[in-house]
């Protein structure tokens, strides 16, 4: 997934970013609202992690603005404001979930996965595709009942396909899930990871649509 993290506390932001990247997610970190507004106009993200008390304003304003212009990117609020009324305000402004600081990084990952599943139209963390069984919450994949191990990057690509089964995802969309914003990528990186995935889960589930991209057979 490509995630936008908006957080002004550097130490916390760095730890969150490192943890998400270790899970194979691509993370862009911005410490202020103004930068975030600009970036969200030009780039599509799978999830926004939004702090509320930012140096140049309140995160709720940003959320209201992007919802007003029809942007439905899932948003999870990370904040030290623990009051229920703040939370109701955040949810009413269009947030999908609300994490109060301090939180466990593991809990944050679980919440992001739950929100992501909800947006994919399949809130059930357990999926079956052919002889594949996938536990999205725990990132486990079984082929004919046998568990296989995926690296973080392999999971990131596979997760993109899992969230929209049957839909064609462009190479560019899969690249976004793989790399940090602005990072250098090789031209054949997506093909390399698709090839590795096919070796592990078999060639059938992931189909190539020539000249367009890839599709997970539903």
């Amino acid at each position: 997934m490509r995630i936008l993290l908006i957080e002004d506390e550097q130490s916390l932001a760095q730890a969150i970013k490192d943890h998400l990247m270790a899970q194979g997610e691509a993370v862009d970190w911005l410490p202020a609202l103004a930068d975030a507004e600009d970036t969200l106009r030009s780039t599509r993200y799978d999830i926004i992690l939004l702090d509320l008390n930012l140096p140049d304003g309140n995160g709720i304003t940003l959320l209201q603005n992007i919802r007003k212009r029809g942007d439905v990117t899932p948003c999870v609020i990370l904040t030290a404001q623990d009051q229920i009324s703040d939370r109701i305000k955040g949810l009413n402004a269009g947030a999908d979930d609300y994490l109060v600081k301090p939180f466990d990084l593991g809990e944050m990952i679980a919440r992001l996965a739950a929100v992501s599943r909800r947006y994919s139209g399949n809130p059930n963390p357990l999926m079956e595709i052919g002889n594949l069984e996938i536990d999205q919450a725990n990132r486990l994949v079984f082929v004919s009942g046998r568990q296989i191990d995926l690296t973080a990057r392999e999971w990131a690509v596979f997760d993109q396909l899992l969230r929209r089964p049957g839909a064609i995802l462009s190479k560019r969309q899969l690249e976004d899930a793989l790399y940090e914003f602005g990072a250098e990528i090789e031209s054949n990186t997506v093909e390399v990871y698709i090839s590795r995935l096919r070796k592990k889960i078999g060639p059938e589930p992931i189909r190539t649509v020539r000249g367009v991209g890839y599709r997970l057979e539903g």
């Binding site: 506390e9 130490s11 916390l12 760095q14 730890a15 969150i16 490192d18 943890h19 270790a22 008390n53 030290a80 404001q81 623990d82 009051q83 109060v100 600081k101 301090p102 939180f103 466990d104 990084l105 593991g106």
Partner: peptide, 25 residues
């Protein structure tokens, strides 16, 4: 009370997250 919450929670959150990263690495 609200400001204290913010001032106190954020550094604890940072310390906890950094420690969890340390353990993970």
């Amino acid at each position: 009370a609200a400001n204290s919450a913010h001032e106190l929670r954020t550094p604890i959150a940072a310390a906890l997250a950094q420690t969890q990263r340390l353990r993970a690495e």
